[in-house]
Design a protein around this nucleic acid. Structure first.
Lengths: 152, 152
DNA sequence: CTCTCTGCAAAGCATTTGCACATTG
DNA sequence: CAATGTGCAAATGCTTTGCAGAGAG
């Protein structure tokens, strides 16, 4: 089993390095903001017998070890991504597409809030919603402010 | 039925103003970031027969009308609040307490992202997590950086 | 060899939905 | 009175969990 790459974090931890966990770790590099089902599909290409329960148990310990970030928005299924770099998300209200985005200017904003409310060890997640360029091109004009809600 | 206060938005809409909906609207003023169950409890004080299904259907149309904001974080149950003013949330990792927070400096950050990625009609939700002052006081010292994860 | 992990299947929980009856405008 | 809304209970979808056997160290 590969013990020098993405697996290193697990090896150093109090958890055992199993082939299922290694496969999940590798699958995480195989796409952005993957759902548990997405991960299951990818993991099963290598290791057909793996169960969804194992995916959930694995991402949970990877989160505890700081190796994955979990993204949720409204009631949608959780998305998992390797903790390579801190980033935030842009979600299209129309097509539900998710884009990763770096927001370097957010740091000072968060520091300010932490200081004002006396919070320690702060982290933050910013989710920007709106209509992406392709959906705007495809859709009827919208000249008014505020939420654009179709009544289905 | 009161038709001049919080009910006005519903009255002007294509939806009927029922006593259940009015009660939900009033219940929303009765606390911050309330869960569906919280709303149900409050609504039932006035109107004992109301069902959870009605709460969910009602908050959904209120969201569509822009009268409530919905806050979710990780897998937690959704929280509902009247759309009085735009605000964001501070969530304590330890006690799970939620604090509303105004973040006036966020506007330019979001505008920048919208421009860069060509998104229209953008909105944003910022959730800052960390350890609140009372939990920090109560807990063992934490001098290292990063997430503080107790193994239960 | 012991402790941890896994697959399976069942349970859990928040939310949604179908339907027959009640209510609104 | 026609259209819409409601209560109830069942269904849904994601996630978690108990257990007995498999695998890691």
């Amino acid at each position: 089993m590969d013990s020098t790459g993405v697996d290193a974090g697990l090896l150093r931890s109090r958890y055992r390095l199993t082939k299922q966990r290694s496969a999940v770790l590798h699958a995480l590099d195989d796409g952005e903001h993957l759902t548990a089902e997405d991960l299951l599909d990818r993991v099963r290409r290598q290791l057909p017998g793996v169960s969804l329960g194992t995916i959930y148990r694995t991402v949970d310990i990877l989160r505890e070890l700081g190796l994955v970030q979990i993204f949720t928005h409204n009631g949608m299924a959780a998305r998992y991504e390797a903790s390579l770099s801190k980033h935030h998300h842009l979600v299209c209200d129309v097509c539900r597409d998710i884009t990763n985005v770096n927001v370097p200017t957010l740091g000072p904003v968060i520091k300010g809030i932490a200081a004002q409310y006396r919070y320690d060890d702060v982290d933050a997640s910013l989710t920007v919603t709106g209509r992406c360029a392709s959906c705007a091109a495809r859709a009827p004009a919208s000249t008014f402010e505020g939420t654009v809600e179709d009544r289905d």
